[in-house]
Computed example of a mutant assay.
Amino acid sequence: MKKSPLWAGILSPPIALGGIGAAIIINRSWWRLTDNAISDLGKVGLPYNWVMNVPLFISAVLAIYYAEGLFRELKNPISKLGIGVFILGLAFLAGIAVFPEGTEPHYHVSWGFFLAGGVGYLIAGTGLWLEGQRKFGAFTVLLFIAEVLLARWAFKTFNGVAIAEFTGVFAMIIWHYALLWEKFFAEKS
């Protein structure tokens, strides 16, 4: 893979998390991890909603660029399918920024991001397992199970959905960096 998609893949998560973190700081007078959704930080009519929405959009574009390069690198059709579904999830991430909370499509693009992102990495990891990358495949399945169990617990325990959302976000980010390391850096060490 060329260096520019690799750099896009490396930089995408910190850009999104930086925007979310800055939005939390700006809105700390009312936003609570246990009582809100992440999307509350970018909702229509909120002053400075762009602080979260612009980095989310940039992050999604960078991640799609990286994942498209990854798609071309993979040989197994199951892995390719998984990355294709993951790319769809990233397109939904861009949709969260374009259709913030308070717009009709927001609910659908938000769920689309979490569902396609999680299912996409699960399918891709399964494909890599079938290619012989057993440890990475097992890691993927365990990460997905942990994500689902923790998110379900958070949905039942807290008034807001931010903890469940962060569970999904961090699972995708952990998987992304683990795959990045496995495919492009571990082989060179």
Rank of each mutant, 00 (worst) to 15 (best):
P5V: 01
L6Q: 02
A8Q: 07
A8I: 05
P13F: 01
L17H: 05
L17A: 12
I20H: 01
I20E: 07
A23C: 12
I24F: 10
I26K: 15
N27G: 08
W30N: 11
W31E: 00
R32K: 14
T34P: 10
A37L: 14
I38S: 02
L41T: 03
K43N: 05
L46K: 03
P47E: 12
Y48K: 15
Y48S: 13
N49R: 15
N49H: 15
W50L: 04
M52V: 02
N53E: 08
F57E: 00
F57W: 06
I58S: 01
L62Y: 06
A63D: 02
I64A: 00
R72D: 01
E73M: 00
K75V: 10
N76S: 14
I78W: 15
I78A: 12
K80S: 06
K80I: 02
I83F: 07
G84P: 00
L88C: 11
F99S: 06
F99E: 05
P100A: 04
E104L: 15
H106M: 07
Y107R: 13
H108L: 14
S110L: 04
F114K: 10
L115F: 14
A116L: 11
G117N: 04
G120W: 04
L122K: 05
I123F: 06
I123M: 03
T126G: 13
T126C: 15
W129G: 01
G132T: 03
F139W: 09
F139R: 06
T140D: 04
F144Y: 14
I145D: 13
A146T: 10
A146F: 04
V148H: 06
K156C: 04
F158Q: 10
A164I: 12
A164E: 15
F166N: 00
I173R: 00
Y177R: 03
L180Y: 09
K183N: 09
K183M: 15
F185A: 03
A186D: 08
S189D: 14
S189E: 14
